[in-house]
Design a protein around this nucleic acid. Structure first.
Length: 369
DNA sequence: TATTCGTGGGC
DNA sequence: TGCCCAAGAAT
């Protein structure tokens, strides 16, 4: 066996995180679900979602047949909601195209929505014992440091080299090795302040030999985050119900239920705001356009009331500044043939698949903790 | 090829 | 506090 693999497997046997829930199973459904949830997500964030999801939808068939709203409600708060929509589509394809069994080749597995090369390899190795290399953030960082790779980690040529390296280093026991290198990356070879004294690869690590462990991977220059501004409508009917709008599948918060949103100009999408402008200012003109836009889009006769203080929510690639607008409704009834508008009692609203800042708003209003 | 997709932890 | 980063994939 390659010395690196042997050292990693020995270390893993003693120090690995053997107690993770998805490591107690060899069921492809369990392992696949864990891999999807863990994409760009830390273990402790995904853990409670994994348990709840499996409890509610314990099989390919259950997930395939579920209502999308239920799937998104189970995912609500975990982020990257395309994963949830793709997961359901993948389950449907496993049932219809693969007879209820996860495909047992890399080529077939990556045809499933939301399953890329690394996710497919992880499932095949763990569920079927195949010798398949992964290349996630942990493995990538370990390889970059151990081989002192200076190139831009995101460049295509670097990715290709890393995949070649990962494949060459992965032993027959890929199941154990993949988990070992992930645990090393998460526990020892961390992004900042790696604990090289406790690393089983310290004697073979080029970065450590060169005294550059802390300097790798190379830093990629970051683009400044644009700011976007929007208003959210808080309208309650005579029975105390609140109006929610289902967002389209594409775009941010796709498929989730949200407070009706409008830009200061009345448009549907948040507008870019520079430092000098005050797009969230409470002016008669802004109120006018908001009232007109929402009344038309929602088919309601609205009377705007107070505007709440500005809040913000930071995404990976932009910052959303927003204010909540209280309103009264005259008459009733929302005409919505597409069923993208619904009145919910407060408790019902909180059971829906909501984006985190919207959940926070509704929770505070209903006096919850 | 470069963007677009969430959210919370940690320093 | 602000910023970086995470068990990546789709478009």
């Amino acid at each position: 066996m390659i010395p690196i693999a042997e050292a990693l497997l020995d270390w893993y046997a003693c120090h690995g995180r053997h107690d993770l829930p998805w490591r107690q199973s060899r069921d492809p459904y369990h392992l696949w679900l864990a891999e999807i949830m863990l994409q760009q997500t830390q273990v402790e964030s995904a853990r409670p979602y994994y348990a709840r999801f499996l409890q509610a939808l314990p099989s390919w068939q259950a997930l395939a047949a579920a209502a999308q709203d239920q799937v998104l409600a189970l995912w609500s708060g975990l982020g990257y909601y395309a994963r949830a929509r793709n997961a359901q589509r993948a389950a449907q394809e496993v049932v219809t195209r693969f007879g209820g069994h996860f495909p047992n080749t890399l080529e077939a597995a990556v045809t499933l929505p939301g399953v890329g090369r690394s996710t497919a390899a992880a499932v095949l190795a763990s569920a079927f014992g195949h010798r398949q290399a992964i290349l996630d953030a942990n493995a990538r960082r370990v390889l970059i440091r151990s081989h002192a790779i200076d190139a831009d980690p995101k460049a295509a040529a670097t990715q290709q080299w890393l995949w070649t390296l990962a494949s060459a280093l992965t032993p027959e026991d890929a199941h154990g090795y993949n988990q070992a290198i992930q645990d090393l990356g998460a526990m020892i070879c961390t992004p900042r302040q790696p604990r090289c004294v406790a690393c089983p690869l310290v004697d073979r690590c080029l970065a450590h030999a060169q005294g550059r462990s802390h300097a790798l991977p190379a830093i990629v220059n970051k683009a400044p985050k644009p700011q976007r501004c929007a208003f959210f409508l808080l309208v309650v009917d005579t029975e105390g119900q609140i109006l929610l709008e289902k967002r389209p599948d594409s775009g941010i918060w796709g498929g989730l239920w949200c407070l009706p949103q409008a830009a200061p100009d009345g448009g549907a999408f948040p507008v870019l705001c520079s430092g000098t402008l005050h797009p969230l200012e409470d002016t008669p003109a802004v109120r006018q356009s908001l009232q007109a836009a929402w009344s038309r889009r929602l088919g309601l006769n609205l009377q705007l009331r107070a505007l709440e203080e500005e809040q913000q929510h930071v995404f990976t690639h932009f910052q959303l500044r927003f204010r909540c607008v209280h309103a009264r409704v005259w008459g009733s009834a929302v005409a919505d043939s597409a069923a993208t508008l619904r009145w919910h009692r407060p408790a019902d609203a909180l059971a829906q698949g909501l984006p985190t800042p919207i959940r926070r708003i509704l929770r505070e209003r209903s006096g919850g903790c």
